[in-house]
Computed example of a mutant assay.
Amino acid sequence: MQVAAYISDLLYRHECVVIPNFGAFISRRVPAQYFESTHTLYPPKKGLSFNEQIKQNDGLLVNYISTVEKLPYEDAMQEIRNYVRFLDHEMDEKGEITIHKVGRFTRTAENALSFTPMYLVNYLPEAFGLSMQETYAIDRTAVPVEKPTPQPVASISKMEPAPSKTNEPVEKPVRQLETPASRSAAWVRAAAAVAILVAGSYAGLYSYQTQQFNDAVAVEEMANEQLKSKIQEASFFISTPLPSVTMEVAPIVKNYHVVAGAFRDPANADKKVTQLKALGYDAERIGVNKYGLHNVAYASFAERNDAINELYRIRKQGNDGAWLLSGSLKK
């Protein structure tokens, strides 16, 4: 029987799994870790440890084996005893034993069990599918960029004339180098030309928009004058007035009452109403019940939810004797 597989299954769902008469595996949550020395990121996991002092059977492993293998409880317990004897025998013979997917056991100089967990197995369900990630450092050293040195540009001021048919010497034009001052003057002239064009365009656009606005105002004034003349010419006469309409609105029926008390004597009921009104309640006598008692309400409502909310509020103020009455009473 693969008892090690059942131990591994339980470690996914429980924080403590006891092998009776051997020891207990205890798990705890370990957050994600980053090791700067190796640039490695590890996901969160369940860290395993072993406590040799916890040997008492808690029934978890036995019941699980009994359910999965469909064995009686005593037979499952016997399987665990056989497995523990196997572990002890291997430790005595080889000095170490490995439980698959759980960890490795060895003996210390004091003959105590030393446990090394299996780091490649992650028993944290939330981290399923996550694995170790290796990162790489980014070299952020700035690389200097060399700026090119501007070179002077030669320009030809005039075209060379065609050679003369005569033998007279022809004077050749001299090439002039373009200087920073000449380039600056050229830019100034170009900018001035652009500014003149923009100013002219803006002036034309402003003139056009102004004309459009004046035209719209004139049209609106003309329409207003025509409307006034039409109103002055018209006259309204109502020869037969409309008959008045009388509508009957059904009164709001408040059949939900937060009752403060019931009194045999009407005078006591009226006294209670006066006291509640002095405290700010919309109190009133709501009628006589079948026992002949006069009921006094803190307030009455048309909606049940409003009455329930008021009842809760009144009880929170210490009036535990308040209760809800539905329906109407005879006056």
Rank of each mutant, 00 (worst) to 15 (best):
E74Y: 05
I65S: 04
P241W: 10
S155C: 11
V253F: 08
K290Y: 02
S49F: 01
G47L: 05
D270P: 00
E15N: 11
F236T: 14
G23I: 05
A307P: 02
L177R: 08
L10E: 05
S49C: 03
Y42P: 01
I99P: 09
Y6G: 03
V258L: 06
D92H: 02
E96W: 10
L325A: 04
N214S: 11
A109W: 13
N224A: 07
Q56N: 12
A216N: 11
V84C: 04
N111Y: 07
Q275N: 01
G327W: 01
N224S: 11
E178G: 08
I238P: 01
L227M: 15
T141C: 13
Y312K: 14
S244R: 14
P241V: 05
N57A: 10
E134S: 15
I314H: 09
E36G: 11
A190S: 12
V249D: 04
L276V: 01
Y202M: 15
M159S: 13
E146F: 03
T106P: 01
P266K: 07
N82S: 13
Q33C: 08
A260M: 01
A137M: 12
Y73K: 13
T108A: 12
L177C: 06
I7Q: 04
G129R: 11
F263W: 05
A127M: 04
G200R: 10
P125I: 06
K101Q: 14
P266E: 06
M118G: 00
K55Q: 15
K172T: 09
A216R: 11
A5F: 15
F115M: 09
S328M: 12
A203M: 15
Y6I: 03
I54G: 00
A193H: 11
V3H: 00
L120G: 09
S37H: 13
A112Q: 15
E52F: 06
Y64Q: 12
G261C: 02
G204N: 06
R104F: 12
V253I: 11
P180T: 05
P117V: 01
E126N: 07
F86M: 14
H14K: 08
E178H: 07
G95A: 06
L60G: 05
L71D: 09
I238T: 14
V62G: 01
A181M: 06
S184R: 15
Q2K: 12
L177S: 08
D58S: 10
S207C: 00
W187S: 14
V249W: 08
S49K: 03
S239D: 14
Q133R: 15
N305E: 13
Y281V: 05
